[in-house]
């Protein structure tokens, strides 16, 4: 039976956040800038959009957070957990499957 497509567009911020946090721990402002940078400005999340997603990912165990004093301010840094790495693998596989399917559809002549 064919796998059903996940709501992949709504999962894009989650995928990008997990991917970035796989490389290093980061805080909110840093993450918004990094997403713009790594997607070549193709994806630009609203400044406040990521916090509900970060908290939600932390709640389900995909991320952990810790407060760090930096330059007289206390920042909340997020990092990936083992569960988060598994979730990232799953999202990456879903994304590649969908991307492959769309590429195939676009390359198939429309009268086929």
């Amino acid at each position: 039976m064919a796998q059903s497509n996940p709501p992949f567009m709504s999962g894009v911020p989650e995928l990008l956040l997990l991917r970035l946090l796989q490389q290093q721990e980061m805080y909110g402002y840093d993450l918004v800038r990094a997403i713009r940078r790594v997607t070549g400005e193709a994806i630009s999340l609203g400044e406040g959009v990521i916090y509900p997603i970060l908290h939600s990912l932390e709640r389900n165990g995909s991320l952990k957070s810790k407060r760090k004093p930096v330059g007289g301010r206390t920042r909340v840094y997020y990092s990936l957990t083992r569960k988060g790495r598994d979730r990232l693998d799953q999202l990456q596989n879903d994304w590649r499957r969908i991307q492959g399917g769309i590429t195939t559809a676009l390359e198939t002549p429309s009268n086929a």
Binding site: Y27, Y29, G48, H55, T74
Partner: peptide, 17 residues
């Protein structure tokens, strides 16, 4: 707990902006 941290993060984000 989420409220306190979210507001702290928003304040920090605002200062960065």
């Amino acid at each position: 707990g989420h409220v306190r941290r979210t507001v702290d993060e928003l304040r920090d984000h605002f200062q960065d902006l």
